[in-house]
Amino acid sequence: MLKENKHTSSNPFRIAVIGAGPAGIAAAVSAAAMGVEVDWFDKEQRPGGKLNDYHQLFPDREFADQILKDFSGKTEAIEIKKHFGTIVSSIEKVDGNYNLLSNKGIKGSYNAVIIAAGFDFFDARLKEEYGYGMYDHVITSPDLEKMLKTGQEKLKCNGSFPEAMAFVHCVGSRDQQIGINYCSRLCCITGIKQAIEIRELFPSCKVYNFYIDMRAFGSGYEELYRQAQEKYNVQFIRGRVSEASENQQKRIVLKAEDTLMSRPVKVTVDWLVLLVGMVPSCTMVDVENFSCTDQETGFYKQSNPLSGGGLSGQPGIFNAGACGGPMSIPEALASGRSAAMEVWQYLIKR
């Protein structure tokens, strides 16, 4: 297939996009489509970001691999210079342009940079009371995604399918104990989706979701929640699990309160799934002489919470996707496209 290439010497704009997750893909493809020369960086060897490890996606349960295929169709159809396996550590300003410092040396000089470095999963070991890393049958939602992707056999316990499973919402979110006050927005719907998948795979397995508030904000999310209740008989219990321990059979015993019943509850499950929140990436890119992250949350800040989406406040530096805070795939894609648009505005006005 002939690659579309609008880049000519008469169009001298050159930018860098850091990150090849959904946001970076949208930003790189959109900017290239506008005729900008794009250098594209990711620390991994392939694009797709977190989606590479997901099984099915909410709200429609589309396979992540399918979406990734659609993405690569788009990125292959246009010329973008890929620098994969490159961990960008910081950005410095030289003569009004930007250089990127990475494990592979210095690259420059770019008229603008879009940071789309994504997020990390909350490290569940920090919530000691759930025993992640201590008990074999305590896993996180991304762990479960991988298990679902690579085969349900992995979910067998002592040779048979699980009889009961529990999901704990808000692990690493909305929690003063670990200094994280924000809501990660997508863990509720992840829990709903994964609960449904488990009920489909193992119809005799009881599934409990322990939540503080149910936040199903996106399009199609509330409908999925209702389906989980009505069609799949997932038990949503309002109350936060505050202790997990292991019994002799290596099953996990949970303690919570059903706050709607005003009663403590106890349940033994084969698997405990922690719906971990989204935290700033540990490979956040520093921008020289500029504090580009929000003091409270650690995510990249926007120049204005209402109108400054994608604008870092530093001319020429833009951000897109979940590196600016918890975001869904459609939101990350939209934010990548809009960052490309902002970059274009910036470049032509320069």
């Binding site: 069609k231 008989n233 059903d258 009663r263 403590p264 509850v265 106890k266 349940v267």
Partner: peptide, 22 residues
Amino acid sequence: RQIDLDQLDTTLADKIALAVNS
């Protein structure tokens, strides 16, 4: 006072849900 979900028996709820799933 703890409700032990391991002991629960939801036969009645299931019967009612058959008639009114919502």
